[in-house]
Nucleic acid binder design. Sequence first.
RNA 1: UCCGGCGUAGCUCAAUGGCAGAGCGGGUGACUGUUAAUCACUAGGUUGUAGGUUCGAAUCCUACCGCCGGAGCCA
Length: 431
Amino acid sequence: MSQIIKIKDVAQYLDQEVTFQGWLYNKRSSGKLRFLLVRDGSETIQCVVFKGDVPEEIFDDATKLTQESALRITGVIAKDERSALGYEMQVKGLEIVSLADEYPITKKEHGTDFLMDHRHLWLRSSRQHAIIRIRHEIIRSAREFFDDRGFTLVDTPIFTPNAAEGTTNLFETDYFDEKAYLAQSGQLYGEAAAMAFGDIYCFGPTFRAEKSKTRRHLTEFWMIEPEMAFCDLEKDMQVAEEFITHIVKSVLKNRRNELVILERDIEKLEKIEAPFPKIHYDDAVEILKKNNIDFEYGGDFGGTDETVISEQFDRPVIVHRYPAAVKAFYMKRDDKNPDLALAMDMLAPEGYGEIIGGSQREDDHQVLLDRVKEHNLPEKAFAWYLDIRKYGSVPHAGFGLGIERTVSWICGLNHVRETIPFPRFMNRLYP
RNA sequence: UCCGGCGUAGCUCAAUGGCAGAGCGGGUGACUGUUAAUCACUAGGUUGUAGGUUCGAAUCCUACCGCCGGAGCCA
């Protein structure tokens, strides 16, 4: 057998005999010719079998190959303008590794529910390849951003003993006859880690048991959450905008072809450059009023509100200083107006909604203890968290980026369910 | 939980009260350059489930189930 190569490297082997290992993506035929589209995970190439060039049994094998059959195929690489890749293989040899059963996913259109039932096979299609590779680049560049700035990766637990804000939106599990909950954020542990290492981030799955049936919600999704000691809200927002700029630029540089496959409007992504507009909550409410949106001051923004606000700008917009009443207990209040929390949300353009939520944290022990009591939280369960404020407390801040919403925005998708290999949402636990 | 839509062949859909169909996929055959190849032939159905109206129901009515979209919910 000749040298086994990846299809993406085909240009280096012009006029040489090589072997691919892969799967049959599609097959066309014409008389004494068989056109085999072979995918090996790196790329897809057309391999041409001419009856006069190969032994009869090889031509018969090429004829009986079914979609997604596994194969090893050997031949000479030739340049060909008629082929989508620019190259194709003139086949000399073919080994069927396994003949596939009738494949459920055909070349015609399918409904989303059917495709989700066959998610394990759907991942083989070119569109899903493009999305998952962009997801990979987003995660790779996100880690690179923090790694290059000296952040330490400190991952946080998934089993947690207590519910920060009630248990209705948490998945409950049995932990040796004790109740445990799947984490909905690593942040509280991240704060402890920041006091140990200065700048840290965690990256892992988070779980929300909300019965949300919208294009923006999953029950299991991934968040990357930096936490920084000696950091205030202003610096927090600055890190966030530089972070997003870095991710978008990395995708544009390293996964441009995938964006083209997805027919993404690349010009819109090329406008993403720090600094981003940063508007006060009051200004955001003003925007809603100007657009005749019925909105009561003091509330949180709904999906439509977020879309209207983000549509005013050509890059992500950061809204800061929300009413403390609609935000979490651990957020520090604004000195200038104690009704406002030092919180910030970043809204993606084009109506993709909140991709980042962050804040400066309350660093005073007594104030935080009062908040825990106000929210009727179990003081004992939060003892370790309050400890952080007793032993060398400092101003600190951080944020969380939702990976799937970011992938959805950068890819220009209309639903987050395609942004994760095996999504979990309402009515979807299989495969 | 609420509001709206949908459920017909493996898949995507048509048939709106009167014979249950097409395209794709499968099978058989033809073709030396196909690009979701094309062409011919062929197999494939408890019309989501249960009940009701009617001479007659995929079609109208009721309930249930499932799915989709949205709202609510969403540190």
